[in-house]
Computed example of a mutant assay.
Amino acid sequence: MVRAGLTPERLTRAGAELADEVGFDQVTVSALARRFDVKVASLYSHLKGSHDLKTRIALFALEELADRVAAALAGRAGKDALAAFADAYRDYAREHPGRYAAARLRLDPETAAAGAGVRHSQMTRAILRGYDLSEPDQTHAVRMLGSVFHGYVSLEEAGGFSHTPVDPQESWAWVVDSLDLLLRSLSADRSR
């Protein structure tokens, strides 16, 4: 029997909230059942198991992050767009650490192609059009931005910047300025 009010969407959202509270690695169907005060078996009419739950949370987080980034990018171009993208990404990771971890879950190619990962790539490429990069430089730049943003956020989340007197926000601004400078110089070099 299906418990009234439980849906895959409600369970996914609750799983995302749980991930932010206890960490994405700790999210299981059992933990979610405890949250709803139901037996684990009652959730299997909505979920196939913990992997299905984690995949749903990952897709939810990717969509949520893509919506946030799209709103931040509206009407912006060049360095302003780059900074808005970077800030939206970092702010999401800081506000929703479990969801951010979920968004890093390795998805099978079919699931990834149907999810918001494509939107993230398209938005990054839209920013890069302002720098007039052609292929393969544009693909390299997409990978570089993702690597830099994820690396910074991961180090910051792990407390990697707490031992220095320099404010992490100051370093973040320096990183974004440096990326803008690099991307503009690549564009200028290619046009010569």
Rank of each mutant, 00 (worst) to 15 (best):
T139A: 11
L32G: 03
M123K: 02
G115P: 03
G117F: 06
H51G: 04
S162A: 14
S121T: 11
H96I: 09
M144Q: 06
V118A: 11
V29P: 03
S162E: 15
H120Q: 03
D91C: 01
A81K: 06
P109N: 14
R68I: 02
S30V: 07
F24Q: 05
G117C: 04
G130V: 00
V153C: 14
P136H: 08
A116T: 10
K79Q: 14
A141S: 10
A113Y: 04
Y44N: 08
E110N: 05
R129A: 11
K79E: 15
L145V: 14
G151Y: 11
A33E: 08
A141Q: 08
I57D: 04
L105G: 10
L53D: 12
E64H: 14
A31M: 06
R34V: 05
H96Y: 13
M144Y: 05
A77M: 11
D91A: 03
G23F: 15
G78P: 00
L82K: 01
A31L: 09
A116G: 12
V40H: 14
L65V: 03
I127D: 00
D80H: 02
G23Q: 15
H51P: 00
I127H: 00
S134Y: 00
A33H: 08
S42V: 15
S121C: 02
S147F: 02
L73T: 13
R119P: 00
S154R: 13
S147D: 03
Q26T: 08
L65R: 11
K39Y: 11
H120T: 01
A66F: 07
T55L: 05
H51D: 15
L73F: 12
A41F: 04
R35F: 01
E110T: 13
